[in-house]
Design a protein around this nucleic acid. Structure first.
Lengths: 335, 335
DNA sequence: TTGTATGCGTTATCAT
DNA sequence: ATGATAACGCATACAA
């Protein structure tokens, strides 16, 4: 392993000079700096991130706290896209990514402890139980954090547009003539609460009276629970003409149930998804859904997090909403 | 931040003693060791991974080289499961995980350089172009590596059972009376080559003569390409009675095409998938497929990698095949 | 413009 | 059984 010292000996200068030259310090004359860089290149020098981190207290390492309960966390296209664009943007600024968890070796540690142990410069938090005390402890610490789809006071949050999205979806099916609209929602989170509230509000504004049995609980990214909810909806005396699903992936469970009942989409029943995953756009009929801009969410999260790390004094936490768009497929029939 | 020195002052012993006590050295008397541990706990001491890594040359950090081309890498349930179980097993042994890529900041580096820069103790490699010179450079370096689904000489590889799986699948549909079996395969990799060879060999053994137009290329995890391949197969004069797909996810593209043609699975045409992803088991009819033990693959990869790190002298690289199992659904009709 | 010296927190060697 | 000390590779305050 070639170190700064090796270079300094070869160049006949001090290690301090080499360090400065390599870091582009203005102190060093362009001539020697150029020479040092050349030698460093020739010798195949690579900075030692560990030593640098120990000295500077900056690891250039970002923690990623994604919970993989039901191991759907990363398999979830929405989150895997966010992670990927987060990673790309982070790397563009020279940051690496480390997963944060709570059991390392035999010693159980909190998320915060794990971050400190690894000297993470910042953490992005998504897809977790935001009421978990260990998550709250992390967010309230001095480590910069960015959360996705959940707001903490005086912390940056990147939000998908859960209110306007559901409003637009409901308005869309309303315009297509639907009045009996069912809503299958995910587990109780602030995202779900927002979507539900937006659903009720929009329906109210449109003068729709949605019976209670049109609202069914399910679990995000779990086709089976949406299949069951679908089954219940289909067995109602007053069957809805359109069903809104928690997400595209869950819809596939519903789709299966609908087809099993010999019904056709959209002729016999209309459906709407959420997320805009690739798969749903490949199936026929194409699913009408809300396309979230996961790529922008991840990129923005990284960008904000890095800003807050690099300008700790002047950075102002903010809530940023990333707009998505209505994707009109063929799964909603005009009545 | 509380350091070893802080503890040593508080305990009235030297920092060397604290370090030894905390690391369970036999040199220290049980009595003082216990006291030191107690104080450390009270003070909320956390070891500094950075300082430790600098001193010991061990980062307790494993690199993960997964290429996310077409951003399906992590969205791919097979790989995301592997990654997750790898992570869980690694953490059980006190290792963290860092993604390896080739462009960090403005400086482009090779995978090997990235690993060195981060002092990775080892790397797991999957879902990449194994003929990429930068990948080969990494594998041939002194950094321990484990590859998944590709063998390098004198290196550990964890393999799914591509040969026996395809044999069993073909035998299965053969037993159900199918003779006209089409095979849609993924892009050209050693995995694909193995599956194709196994397909041809099994067919030969069974006395089946598969016409060339029954073999269609597609792309793994890309429903659209499998949809096109399906379309071509369905338009043949001599239409196959059964289609084998590259993977379950790709099958969904084919499914869509089949249904668009007004055909029913399995009455009009039989289909077989590969991977055994959750989704395919939720749809009706349930897909007959090969369930890969992704969880075991990831776990074994981590376990082997860590062994090779901890016992560099005695560890012997090996190829380990993780068996999967035939999952019989309702997508293959008995003829 | 360049060099010297120090310390980041830890572990390891060698004394005691 | 415990302690003093050096060293890991780097960055920086300060001196020259």
């Amino acid at each position: 392993m070639v170190t700064i010292k090796d270079i300094s000996l070869r160049c006949g200068v001090s290690s301090a000079t080499v360090s400065k030259a390599l870091n582009g310090s203005k102190e060093i004359s362009e001539e020697t700096a150029e020479y040092i860089r050349k030698v460093a290149r020739e010798m195949g020098y690579l900075p030692n991130a560990t030593a640098r981190a120990l000295k500077t207290k900056r690891s250039n390492n970002l923690g990623v706290l994604f919970i993989d309960k039901t191991q759907s966390g990363l398999a979830h296209e929405y989150f895997s896209k966010i992670l990927n664009s987060f990673k790309v943007e982070a790397e563009r600024s020279g940051f690496d990514i480390t997963f944060i968890s709570c059991n390392l070796g035999q010693t159980r540690m909190t998320y915060l402890e794990h971050c400190r142990y690894r000297n993470c410069d910042g953490v992005v938090i998504a897809s977790v139980d935001f009421y978990d005390p260990s998550v709250i402890e992390l967010v309230q610490s001095d480590i910069p954090t960015v959360t996705i789809d959940h707001v903490f006071d005086n912390r940056t949050a990147i939000m998908s547009d859960n209110v306007s999205s559901v409003r637009e979806l409901v308005q869309h099916v309303y315009e297509y003539g639907h009045r009996k609209i069912a809503f299958i929602h995910g587990e109780d989170t602030s995202v779900t609460q927002k979507r539900l509230a937006s659903f009720f509000k929009t329906c109210e504004e449109l003068g729709l009276d949605i019976p209670e049995e049109y609202i069914k609980p399910a679990i995000y990214h779990d086709p089976e629970s949406s299949r069951i909810a679908t089954k219940e909806l289909l067995s109602l005396k007053e069957r809805p003409t359109c069903i809104l699903y928690p997400d595209d992936y869950s819809f596939l469970g519903g789709m299966s149930e609908i087809e099993k009942n010999g019904l056709q989409i959209p002729n016999d029943i209309s459906v709407v998804g959420y997320d805009g995953i690739n798969l749903a756009q490949v199936l026929r009929p194409r699913l009408t859904t809300w396309k979230q801009d996961a790529e922008a969410i991840g990129r923005e999260a990284a960008s904000q997090l890095i800003k807050s790390i690099e300008m700790p004094k002047t950075y102002i936490p903010q809530q940023i909403t990333i707009p998505g768009q209505l994707l009109i497929g063929n799964s909603v029939k005009k009545l």
